[in-house]
Design a binder for these strands. Structure first.
Lengths: 212, 212
DNA sequence: ATGTAATATTTTGTATGCAGAATTCATAGT
DNA sequence: ACTATGAATTCTGCATACAAAATATTACAT
């Protein structure tokens, strides 16, 4: 087994995203490079490199002389991001292999149904949702598009921990996932794409109230 | 007048993109950090920071221990990128202020017509095309979307200097721009978005033959 | 001549050092 | 008490230094 050999900046990036998901940082907090580097046990150089990539993804923002900070959240930006991923995922679905979609459709349906039953932790809910969407788009051959979606979604993770608690809105999401899967089973790709867009728009509405 | 105070990494990024447009680097070339830093008169640190952002935009790619290099071009990737910007610009047009569009539509038409007349240098053609699209999308309030479009287009610049010479395909592009503007003047936003998508798809077809 | 192993050189990835900007703290004046 | 001014401190941005990996070169054996 070859041991993991990736640049430190990537490992640091991943670790920071993990901590972001855990809610360790709140939006607007500015980052002390020296302190964070010490905490991670690395030097400032690869840390800064990680911060720069995160800034490129919209997770952080940087100001000359003032360093990096977690980009503040706003309803406006959240709306913007949802509109973007909705369009991108719809495109990804459009350019997916129909054979793949037909094949995974039953599994997508099963996963969605399973999930509407049991109530889970927030972290699990999000992981499940991500995995579901990944499976849905697994048949898309546009690699750049998939990368882009991943990147934009990274920028959205600042919002995910705001939704905390309450499982009710999730039932709606599960329903919508079922709907998408059903369209796919019926072979209606256009309908599925449209339902997918709705899923994002509705998801947006659901979260919107919790954002300042 | 406040003098320009931007991080060095951004200036370096801009300079590198400029040189890319000039065709100084060909795709696949790997970058020697020390040499390039010396040539630019900066240290490796901000240079690497610039390289990392460019890698994030897909202009460069990096391999552990092997540094950065200009990402190789391929028809597949070019198709992918065109599909992405087509979708993103269509979305931007959808979420644009109709009042703005109505106001700039005549100007867009005039610019497109003017340009179909005089033959220009490649650099000028591209600049004109970029400016035309910028004006078109100037009424979009989704800032993240505009940033994203800029970023994806940066990744496409590797392809732009491949098109070199030949002005004939440009006449077609000008025609298409006219068409879009006419839809806007008629107030048919849906038609304009559709024509915009066509513009990208056709533009892709036009260039495709010159890519290895 | 060709292929291979050992060594030298180059080049990246990471750490450290340093100058200047931004912020904080203290002090003086109103 | 509050503001303004200036010194002290902290922190960023950039440069340099160092270690390890990758590449090139040489020597040698077949």
């Amino acid at each position: 087994m070859p041991i993991e050999r990736r640049p430190l900046r990537e490992q640091i990036r991943d670790e920071l995203m993990l901590r972001l998901d855990r809610g360790d940082f709140s939006a607007g907090t500015d980052i002390n490079e020296a302190a964070l580097a010490a905490e991670l046990g690395v030097s400032r150089t690869p840390l800064r490199e990680a911060l720069i990539t995160l800034a490129g993804e919209g997770v952080l923002e940087s100001n000359q002389g003032r360093g990096f900070r977690f980009a503040p959240v706003s309803r406006k930006e959240f709306r913007e991001l949802c509109a973007i991923v909705a369009a991108l995922e719809a495109l990804a679905l459009d350019s997916s292999d129909p054979v793949y979609l037909e094949r995974v459709a039953p599994e997508l349906l099963k996963l969605a149904q399973e999930f509407s039953d049991n109530i889970a932790e927030r972290q699990d809910i999000e992981r499940h949702d991500d995995e579901w969407h990944d499976l849905l788009l697994g048949g898309c051959s546009n690699e750049r598009l998939l990368d882009l979606i991943t990147s934009v979604k990274a920028g959205m993770r600042r919002y995910s921990h705001l939704v905390a608690g309450e499982s009710t809105p999730m039932e709606r999401a599960a329903e919508e996932h079922c709907r998408i899967a059903e369209y796919l089973i019926a072979g209606d790709l256009e309908g599925a794409a449209s339902a997918l867009r709705d899923n994002w728009v509705n998801g947006m509405e659901r979260m919107m109230s919790r954002i300042p």
